[in-house]
C-alpha cells in the first residue's frame, strides 16, 4: 500500500514535469460502456477485449462492462458524454451509432460529440443464397431481379442496417429492384432464407461458413477489402463486376469528450499493443473479422466519412434523415 502510494506520487510528479503523453495509468477499475444488453455484439466484444487485456497483462486494473442499452446507442452516447473528463471510461461503438444519430431526432448527444480513440475492426460480410438456388453468381441474381422487378426478396435487419445499404447501392448501380424484409433477430433472417421464404441475404462470414460447408448455402460475393482467408473462391463486389465501394461496418472505441490527452494516448497505445497479441489475432481469425486500426483524430475523420455516405444512402432509400 505504502509502495503504491509512493509510486503514485512519483507518477504525479513525473506527469507535472513532462506533460507529454503516456503518463496516465489507470489505478481504479475501468468501465467499458456498450449499447447492447449482455450478449449483444458489442457486449461480447467488450468482454472478450477485457479478458484479453487481462490475459496479456496490458491493463493493470479490473475492467467492467457497463450495459447502457436503449435508443440504439443514444443512451450510451449520452452516458459517455456525462462522464466529461473521466480517464477510466471507454465506449465501444459500431456503425449503428452513426446510423441512429442520422434518423432519431430524440438523440441529442451523438457519437460525434465524443472523443475518438481508435477504430478496431471492420466487419466483412458475405452475400449468400440457398445452395439449391438457381443463382450461381451475383450477376445472375441481378439479371433475374431486372427481369421481374420487386419479386425477389432479401432478408435483413432494420432499414438502416448495412444489409439494406448494400441493397440500395446495388439497386442504384444496376437499376434493379427487389424487396427487403426486415427481421429483428439474426436467427430469423437465416431461418427465412433456409426455409425458402426469401431469396438472398447478407450474413456474417463466420455464421455462413458452417452453412456453406453443410451444403445449405452458397456464397455469391463478399463485402470485404480483400478476399477473406475462409472465402478464397468468393469474389469481392468489385471482382464480381460491381464497381461499388460498400460502406464499411466499423467497430471502434471512443472516450468521454474531455478525457485528458495522456489518458486517451494511453488507451490508443494499449489497443495498439492488443492488436499485436496472439489472443487478438486468434479472436479476429475465429470470428472472421478484418483488423483495421485507425487511431485518434483519423478515426474521427473516418466516422465523418461514413456518416456522409450513410446520409446520402438513407436519402436515396427514402429514409427520413434528421441531421
Amino acid at each position: 500500500m505504502f509502495v503504491a502510494r509512493i509510486v503514485a506520487a512519483a507518477l504525479a510528479v513525473a506527469s507535472m514535469a513532462f506533460p507529454a503523453y503516456a503518463q496516465f495509468k489507470p489505478t481504479k477499475p475501468v468501465d467499458f460502456v456498450v449499447h447492447t444488453g449482455p450478449g449483444g455484439g458489442s457486449d461480447v466484444l467488450a468482454r472478450a477485449v477485457a479478458a484479453m487485456f487481462e490475459k496479456e497483462k496490458l491493463v493493470p486494473v479490473r475492467m467492467n462492462v457497463l450495459n447502457k442499452p436503449g435508443g440504439n446507442g443514444a443512451v450510451a452516447a449520452a452516458f459517455l458524454y456525462e462522464k466529461k473528463d473521466d480517464p477510466n471510461t471507454i465506449g465501444f461503438i459500431t456503425s449503428v451509432w452513426l446510423a441512429n444519430a442520422l434518423t432519431s431526432s430524440e438523440a441529442k448527444i451523438t457519437v460525434h460529440d465524443l472523443k475518438p480513440v481508435a477504430e478496431l475492426l471492420l466487419e466483412p460480410a458475405v452475400i449468400v443464397v440457398r445452395a439449391d438456388s438457381k443463382f450461381k453468381s451475383l450477376k445472375e441474381f441481378i439479371e433475374a431481379a431486372k427481369a421481374k422487378p420487386g419479386e425477389l426478396r432479401q432478408s435483413g435487419g432494420s432499414v438502416t442496417s448495412r444489409d439494406n445499404i448494400v441493397r440500395q447501392q446495388l439497386q442504384h448501380a444496376t437499376g434493379t429492384k427487389w424487396a427487403f424484409v426486415s427481421f429483428p433477430g439474426g436467427g430469423e433472417r437465416l431461418a427465412a432464407l433456409l426455409g425458402g421464404h426469401v431469396d438472398m441475404m447478407v450474413i456474417e462470414p463466420q455464421e455462413a461458413g458452417e452453412q456453406i460447408r453443410a451444403g445449405k448455402l452458397r456464397a455469391l460475393a463478399q463485402l470485404s477489402q480483400t478476399r477473406l482467408a475462409a472465402y478464397p473462391d468468393t469474389p469481392t463486389l468489385k471482382e464480381a463486376g460491381f464497381d461499388i465501394e460498400a460502406t464499411p461496418q466499423i467497430r471502434g472505441v471512443v472516450a468521454p469528450p474531455q478525457q485528458p490527452a495522456d489518458a486517451t494516448a494511453y488507451w490508443i497505445d494499449r489497443f495498439q499493443k492488443l492488436m499485436q497479441t496472439e489472443s487478438w489475432k486468434k479472436y479476429v481469425h475465429d470470428n472472421q473479422l478484418e483488423q483495421h486500426f485507425v487511431p485518434g483524430p483519423a478515426f474521427g475523420e473516418a466516422m465523418k466519412k461514413v456518416d456522409n455516405q450513410l446520409r446520402e444512402q438513407f436519402k436515396e432509400a427514402g429514409i427520413k434523415v434528421v441531421r
Binding site: A99, S104, S158, V159, S182, I319
Partner: peptide
Amino acid sequence: TDLFTATS
C-alpha cells in the same frame, strides 16, 4: 423505433 422505416 419502427424496424421497417427507422421512424420513431
